[in-house]
Design a protein around this nucleic acid. Structure first.
Length: 1146
RNA sequence: GGGCUUGUAGCUCAGGUGGUUAGAGCGCUACACUGAUAAUGUAGAGGUCCGUGGUUCGAGUCCACGCAGGCCCA
């Protein structure tokens, strides 16, 4: 920073700017001045923009992907604040759930089985509560360092009583609407142990064992209906069967559907049943037919077949896709129990494979998880019977035995492994056989004789076993609490259609399909650390759902009045009530489990021991974060639903769904109007980051090394938020050098000269627009276009577009064109109106850029803004003028001032840039450096418009490429030769198929024909009526000149160097050498010098003398002499010569 | 196995409604520039636009079927 100078420093100058330091400094400024708080306060009374924070879990450390996710959230909140909205952002913490439990168990070295034995539930939960906030400090640290604005002083925490009370209220609301019910799901169940097993338990090593089971391919007889008619027609027979394979024949009495894959190929095969030899036509997957039919029997002779022959003839009758089978009805295979509604039809499911069996899955909803799901989605009922209490139960009881209704096998264990040797012996005697035959085996025999089995085999496969008893598990319906989301499916879908998803496909595809295939939300979790289900039940299935602490209190008090409870129960109730009244109760297990109610009929009611799915916790946050409806009615109403949320795409069926479901069911509303689902952050090779593999990027290190702004800018501009990001630190370096470096250079350039000139922004006395140069007007026009584009991009949740547009503006337009071409205006002479205009224009651009970039790069944006405006802030505050704000985050978004947009000028400038580029190219090919002036360029002009467009910028072109004149060549010159090309876009709709012929005609058009076309505006050739729009006319090379062309523009360069030009070239070169010398010698920009040049080369001396005034002015020389002798001069390389000069400060 | 998604230069990415010669930045090579200099300009090398079919006068773009990676689910 320059401090020891005699002029006033209005703008700080920086060397070797450290962006991490910028972030630290600005952060400190924010904290000391409460800028975040102010940014919310100053918008009080304005329309709100509501953002919901998806709560992270603080039991793990934050990663680099959190920087990405939170940058997205931050950007739109900051942007909306600039747009005048009040944006409150309440932070939150997710605290319940399995990851916390597993971490605690790991730390304590225990398993789930030890809970209640080695450690009490109370201690266990206490430990969970401690662990879950373990890394809060790190999270808070990251939040600050990355510049994420969120209110962390008053976050919502899902384990707190207020939060749980709101969750209970929501559950009660659903309960009262009849949307909360007790049902069942199919889960692994051990009849021997009498308990369900978690997937965690099932994944223990050793649970899967190889067993030999009886596998059976059953024949399901197809009924003749409209749907199945094509099979009957093709087979010309009534004996049509669908084959389905199972390794659990005992589930066949519970079959209610057959599931096929809609894209799988199936065949109808005419053959004979291998056990009964009856003629049959069977349906199975084409790929699996080889497993059932001997190649030797293909297209065999049916008439020649004798019962018992090994080779059974068969013939493929037809082939079709699975969707043709959908809705075909069949006869019940083992009609012991009838379903309550229509069943026995073919449905489609996505889990069907052609690896085993027949490509048709026998579906019994009570004994398979897939079966249950697909049946529910298709409205297929289960086979159930009533128990003594009148409750629906499956046909196998909880000990693994058939119920009485399965008459042939009543009360028999479905798996042989469940019988002891003695029990087997007793059964053997009952069966009257030499050897005990299992239920599966006898079902097989029965079906064989009934012409219902097509194949029976022993089958080796791995099968899960209970880790406690070593006996096989069954997939069995177990009690669970559900939210009846399917009842509101249409509403969920309709509301989803009103949500703006970024990207759209996540909403329509991933989320939309999920809603289309919705099943009821299974809320139950058999665990310890979570929100308890607030439902109490009695033996007689009397139920009460608690929706508030007040209700809980009343229920306890009511129970204490009765004398139904035992002494222990009374004592427990009294203890809890005491804590409740004192406000020190804990609503978690085991405490709530020790609360007892008394039902209307005088029965003891105990809590259902389930916890609820943690996803309900987070989905409840719109309500529960405000302890609604118990408090904060007004706040809630203003902050519901959210305008915007954002999380990873993996949350689609998680948080996005639970928010949507709860909100739709409880409030008939969406929970959020706009949602950005973000992609993953991968390592630079595209692999998933993981701590284990060691390729995880530490966010703190990254922020420290590169600074938050370049890191954020890189992440946002490199890929769209919803695409996966391959995180490469080299990319941050690139962004830092290219974008931030260029912008900082531009600022430093401005600051350097503005300080020299003691320039100060005057907000209202500006050089009038009419007096601005073309270059000023051009960059201001570009700036307006940028303001509009960035605004639209942010508005539409497209931060990548916004960032890239800003980047292009800064690097390509502002720095590389406006500043480069305008440099001289800043460094030459005294303050003139033109110089002032240059300062004002550049200042306006920099202040605007600071604001536009501030949502993405909040520290740097503020840094730039404050540097630009610091010197005037106090004055602006007094006057209440626009630059009064102490932070860019407190400003109002730059208005789009369409009157500054000059599209003609932008086109002109575009032409200028292209022309300059062509001239540079020509100079390069002829090895003529830019410092050598040339006399002229020639530009062929095909229209007056083009001539006019170039005329506006001709001075710029001349300066930029160092030429004396631009001349135009038009038709009148007679030297233009034109080339004509077909304009396919225009020709296509007119000529279609004749395109090739027309294109040929155009390409071969003669000069006369082209002239005629140009003059008349239309021409008929070979019967094709052509108009001027159908062709593109370009000029060809000019004979006798060096030319270059690009997209319709041609430039010819006159490379003839006259002696005068040569001298001027020498003068310019000389200026260059002196400037280098000044710089190398460390002269101040303001130093005046004297120059003496040794007279050693005639041409050089002549050139220098001829341009003495010019040189003196350029290098700020007070004297310039050519002398015959120099003592202690410096040697300077000059072309092939070495000159001796003496340059001194005077 | 299903849904969604991605595939364009060595790397990271652009390429409205189809228009014939596919672009940018980085990296590489060469040259130039040097009072913005951790820059800059010009030129060059570098592409089976994942594959195969199809629609069309014309396909990176539209359709179908595949292949490979990713996410979610099973």
């Amino acid at each position: 920073m320059t401090t020891d100078n005699c002029y006033i420093v209005n703008f700080k100058e920086y060397k070797n700017l450290d962006y991490a330091q910028v972030a630290d400094d600005v952060l400190k400024f924010w904290q000391e001045n409460k800028v975040f708080e102010k940014s919310v306060e100053i918008r009080e009374g304005n329309p709100t923009f509501t953002f919901y924070e998806g709560p992270p879990s603080a039991n793990g450390t934050p990663g680099i992907h959190h920087v990405m996710a939170r940058a997205i959230k931050d950007i739109f909140c900051r942007y909306q604040t600039l747009k005048g909205k009040q944006v409150k952002r309440k932070g939150g913490w997710d605290t319940h759930g399995l990851p916390v439990e597993l971490q605690v168990e790991k730390e304590l070295g225990i398993t789930k089985d030890d809970i209640g034995k080695k450690i009490s539930v109370e201690e266990y939960n206490k430990k969970c509560r401690e662990t879950v906030m373990k890394f809060t400090d790190q999270w808070n640290d990251l939040t600050e360092k990355m510049g994420y604005w969120v209110d962390l002083d008053d976050p919502y925490i899902t384990y707190e009583n207020n939060y749980i009370e709101s969750v209970w209220h929501l559950l009660k609301t659903l309960y009262d609407k009849g949307l909360l019910y007790k049902g069942y799901t199919i889960q692994p169940y051990s009849p021997a142990a009498g308990t369900g097993l978690s997937s965690h338990e099932l994944n223990q090593p050793g649970t899967y064992k190889d067993v030999k089971d009886t596998s059976l391919t059953a024949q399901f007889k197809v009924k003749l209906t409209g749907k199945s008619g094509f099979l009957f027609d093709a087979a010309d027979s009534d004996n049509i069967y669908i084959l389905a394979w199972t390794t659990t024949p005992w589930t066949l009495p519970a079959n209610t559907a057959l599931t096929v894959g809609k894209n799988i190929d199936y065949v109808l095969v005419k053959t004979l049943n291998p056990y009964t030899y009856l003629p049959v036509n069977v349906v199975l997957a084409k790929d699996l037919a080889g497993k059932y039919f001997n190649e030797k029997g293909k297209d065999g002779d049916f008439a020649a077949y004798n019962d018992g022959d090994k080779i059974i003839p068969w013939k493929v009758v037809m082939e079709f896709k699975g969707n043709f089978l959908e809705s075909i009805e069949y006869e019940q295979l083992m009609p012991y129990v009838q379903p309550e509604s229509a069943a026995f039809r073919v449905i489609t499911g996505d889990f069907v494979t052609t690896e085993d069996g027949t490509g048709v899955v026998h579906t019994s909803p009570t004994f398979g998880a897939d079966d249950f799901r697909v049946a529910q989605q298709n409205g297929i009922p289960s086979i159930m019977v009533k128990d003594e209490a009148g409750k629906d139960v499956p046909i196998v009881d909880r000990r693994g035995r058939f119920v009485a209704e399965i008459t042939d096998f009543a009360h028999e264990f479905v798996k042989e492994a469940y019988l002891t040797e003695e029990e087997k012996e007793i059964e053997r005697e009952k069966q009257g056989r030499d050897k005990y035959l299992s239920v599966d085996e006898r079902i097989a025999i029965k079906l064989k004789t009934e012409n219902k089995a097509f194949n029976v085999q022993r089958f080796d496969h791995p099968y899960p076993h209970c880790w406690r008893t070593d006996k096989p598990v069954l997939y069995y319906p177990l009690d669970s609490w559900f939210i009846r989301t399917t009842a509101a499916k249409d509403k969920l879908i309709a509301l989803n259609n009103t949500i703006n998803w970024k990207p759209e496909s996540t909403g329509t595809g991933r989320f939309g399909n999920w809603l289309e295939n919705l099943v009821d939300w299974n809320l139950s979790r058999s665990r310890y650390w979570g929100t308890p289900l607030p439902i109490w039940r009695s033996e007689d299935n009397e139920e009460v759902c608690i929706g508030s602490l007040a209700e809980l209190e009343n229920a306890i008090k009511h129970a204490l009045k009765d004398d139904v409870l035992t002494e222990e129960q009374r004592a427990a109730n009294e203890k809890f009530l005491g804590l409740l009244l004192a406000g020190t109760e804990d609503l978690h297990r085991p405490f709530v489990d020790e609360v007892y109610f008394v039902s209307a009929s005088g029965k003891v009611m105990t809590r259902e021991t389930d916890l609820i799915d943690v996803w309900f916790d987070s989905g409840a946050m719109p309500y529960a974060q405000w302890h609604y409806p118990f408090e904060n009615h007004e706040i809630f109403e203003k902050a519901y639903p959210a305008d915007f949320i954002s999380e990873g795409v993996d949350q689609t069926r998680g948080w996005f769904f639970t928010l949507h479901a709860i909100s739709s069911l409880v409030s008939d509303s969406v929970a959020f109007k706009n949602v950005v689902s973000t992609g993953l952050v991968l390592d630079k090779n595209g692999n998933k980051m993981s701590k284990r593999l060691g390729n995880a990027v530490n966010p703190f290190d990254t922020l420290k090394k590169y600074g938050a702004d370049p890191t954020r800018w890189y992440m946002i501009t490199n890929a769209q938020p919803w695409d996966n990001l391959k995180f490469d630190q080299a990319g941050i370096t690139e962004v830092r050098n290219k974008f931030f470096g260029t912008l900082t250079n531009t600022y430093n350039f401005f600051a350097l000269y503005a300080n020299l000139d003691e320039y100060k922004i005057n907000e209202f006395e500006r050089v009038p627009y009419a007096s601005l140069t073309e270059l000023d007007r051009w960059i201001l026009s570009k700036l307006q276009t940028l303001v509009k584009e960035v605004d639209e991009s942010y508005e539409n949740y497209e931060p990548t577009k916004a960032g890239r547009a800003i980047q292009d503006f800064v690097c390509d337009h502002l720095s590389n064109w406006y500043v480069r071409l305008g440099r001289r205006r800043f460094w030459k002479g005294e303050m003139t109106e033109d110089k002032k205009a240059a300062y004002e224009t550049l200042q306006q651009c920099l202040v605007a850029v600071a604001q536009l970039m501030s949502p993405i790069a909040p520290f740097y944006g503020d840094w730039l803004y404050r540097n630009m405006t610091e010197h005037i802030r106090e004055e602006a505050k007094e006057k209440g003028t626009p630059l009064q704000h102490e932070s860019v985050h407190l400003t109002d978004y730059h208005p789009y001032e369409v009157e500054y947009v000059d599209e003609d000028l932008e086109t002109s400038m575009d032409l200028a840039q292209r022309i300059c580029s062509l001239v540079h190219s020509l100079r390069k090919t002829n090895k003529i450096k830019v410092r050598q002036p040339l006399s002229k360029i020639l530009i062929p002009i095909l229209s007056e418009t083009t001539r006019e467009q170039i005329r506006h910028v001709v001075e710029l072109i001349k300066t930029e490429v160092n030429i004396k004149a631009v001349e135009y060549l038009d038709d009148a010159s007679g030297v233009l030769s034109k080339k004509v090309k077909p304009n396919f876009k225009a020709l296509g709709p007119k000529f279609g198929k004749d395109m090739k012929a027309v294109a040929a005609v155009i390409t071969e058009m003669s000069a006369e024909q082209l002239k005629a076309l140009e003059e008349k505006g239309g021409l008929e050739i070979n019967g094709y009526q052509l108009s001027l729009e159908d062709v593109e006319i370009q000029t060809e090379d000019l004979p006798g000149y060096l030319t270059a062309s690009d997209a319709g523009i041609t430039v010819a360069l006159d490379i003839n160097i006259t002696p005068e030009l040569k001298q001027e070239g020498i003068a310019r070169d000389f200026v260059n050498r002196v400037q280098n010398f000044r710089k190398d010698s460390g002269f101040e920009v303001t130093d005046k010098i004297s120059i003496r040049l040794l007279d050693s080369d005639e041409e050089v001396s002549a050139g220098v003398l001829a341009f003495k005034d010019y040189i003196s002015q350029e290098v700020q020389a007070l004297s310039l002499e050519i002398v015959p002798e120099i003592a202690e001069g410096q040697e300077v390389e000059f072309e092939e010569l070495t000159l001796t000069v003496k340059i001194e400060v005077v």
